[in-house]
Design a protein around this nucleic acid. Sequence first.
DNA 1: CGTGATGTTGATTATAATCAAGGTCTGTGG
DNA 2: CCACAGACCTTGATTATAATCAACATCACG
Lengths: 273, 273
Amino acid sequence: MPEAVQMATQGALSPALRRLGQCVLLSQQEIDFFEGMQNNVVAYKRGETMLEDGQPYTCCFCIRSGWAISYRITAAGRRQIVSVFLPGDFIGLHINFSRQAIFSIDALTDLDVALIEPMRLIEIHQKFPILASGLDWSAVRNLNILGEHNVSMGARTADQRILHFLLELWCRLLLIGEASSDGFVLRMTQQQLADALGLSLVHTNKMLKALERRDLIAIENRMVSVPDLEAAIKEADFDPAFLETFRTASLASTGYEKLDERLEQIANIAEKN
Amino acid sequence: MPEAVQMATQGALSPALRRLGQCVLLSQQEIDFFEGMQNNVVAYKRGETMLEDGQPYTCCFCIRSGWAISYRITAAGRRQIVSVFLPGDFIGLHINFSRQAIFSIDALTDLDVALIEPMRLIEIHQKFPILASGLDWSAVRNLNILGEHNVSMGARTADQRILHFLLELWCRLLLIGEASSDGFVLRMTQQQLADALGLSLVHTNKMLKALERRDLIAIENRMVSVPDLEAAIKEADFDPAFLETFRTASLASTGYEKLDERLEQIANIAEKN
DNA sequence: CGTGATGTTGATTATAATCAAGGTCTGTGG
DNA sequence: CCACAGACCTTGATTATAATCAACATCACG
């Protein structure tokens, strides 16, 4: 039995490993090592600050459940959210290159994270090359997401930015089985959306409403759905290519066939423009 | 004689290696391997497109001299410059994780680059762990720069953004000995500045002039200088921490003592706010 | 059943984009 | 040496976009 399939059919893998398994083929030894590394689990409450800008950076986080953000407060007092982290994401993979944090980290929801000691990351790079390349892949993906946010903030209008960001979140959640093929639960307030997109709260609210009026999105409670996928992708100038960097394994064998189909559909619509 | 010093006193090292030497202690074997890797040098003309968005991504570039940019054209036809690359920088270190480019790359000036085959990068990761960690460090630095641009675009005013970006370039150039302690030559047009900062050409020009009027910068020909460093750093909300990630070796032994002093001075002013 | 966090909306102001026109500089060919 | 073109810079006028201000609505929760 090929290892990838064996992996995929085990239900109890951590979100991070499920995610890594989509891009690299891990040996059983690597799987065991990585899962064993996540013993030290810590829970944070919604809104809690996990790490403060300027503080010494001592540990890497791996999200097991919940959402988190990294952000910076400027001298003028404005907050810019730089990244949103979802289950399976790593925060501070590059910790061995940093003396102190240059961003703060907050829990956006109640959160379970595994603490990973810096030494463990070095150990991975020394002993488990495939696993290490998986971590590198994860870092590259974050870089691509950040680059895409740059394009959004510099060259897209407020409504496009919002829509683009929502589509990004949806795709990322689809990849980890935390969204349905109709939509997803947005676990952020409008203020947090605004801070992530470089917009004011009021303007964000108005543009959200405008997008709803134009039927490009529908929001009920916190559930965001996209009635007309093709129109939304076109309006937002969205192409999930930046998220799919080198995905080798499909979701098919993990019981998420439908989500995988949805992702492919999004990619196809984007490709033909 | 310690290897780091030996390295530093050799004049003929490539810019990339000088840069890597500031953060990791390389063995002679690693130095030789890395320098040997840069045989395949290619020259590009100013304005030439080195790689086009969507094209297959076949090679990593290491800049030996000149400036380059990565950018994206949105569906609406706006260009967003995502990164500026200087001598010693790598473009596409993550190439082994990408099928095709999601950005275009242009030469901003006449350019000399070493082409590095993807296999070589894998080889480095397998055989030369210290050198590999140097490359990782370089990637992390790019990530930090990108994050800082995000903060600028989302949460800083146009004039702050411009000033911040100029200070960033100055510090980066100081680190590679391509700026003086008074200032540096800006090898970009105002249109390119605008595209990098998410501003219009006209507004960029007006804000540049306003910064000059306020004596926060002075520009003559292409030479940018900073008459009142303390005021400029404060106005721009600038802290070079995001650039200095884990610098272990100083520039002192490379004949750039004065530049190193200047960098430290900038860091000190930033720190005390 | 109040209190605080969140969401909604209109009015006003600030910021930056767009439009338009002209200026400077550099290199090139006559 | 001059005339010209093209790239780049500069400035004012107008318009569009988004921020700020203010008020109120809704919801969850103790």
